[in-house]
């Protein structure tokens, strides 16, 4: 392949999965666009109370 490779990634959705992808990519040396429909990231997990099994605050 001779085409120019672009060192950036678009992540669609800022839930736990999107955030994790974005973090991994950013920490690996790629520019990340994180696209989220709502006003803040965090997705459904931020609405949970505690998570099993550590009872860590989901926040």
């Amino acid at each position: 392949m001779s085409h120019h490779v672009i060192g950036s990634v678009l992540v669609v959705g800022g839930g736990i999965a999107g955030m994790q992808s974005a973090l991994d990519l950013a920490n690996s040396g790629y520019y990340v666009y994180l696209l989220e429909k709502s006003p803040s990231i965090g997705g459904v997990m931020s609405q949970l109370d505690k998570t099993f099994p550590t009872n860590d605050c989901a926040m």
């Binding site: 950036s8 990634v9 678009l10 669609v12 959705g13 839930g15 999107g18 790629y30 997705g43 459904v44």
Partner: peptide, 12 residues
């Protein structure tokens, strides 16, 4: 945006 790759994580 011109990006090299896209990751879809649109949730549920």
């Amino acid at each position: 945006l011109n990006v090299g790759s896209v990751i879809l994580s649109p949730g549920f």
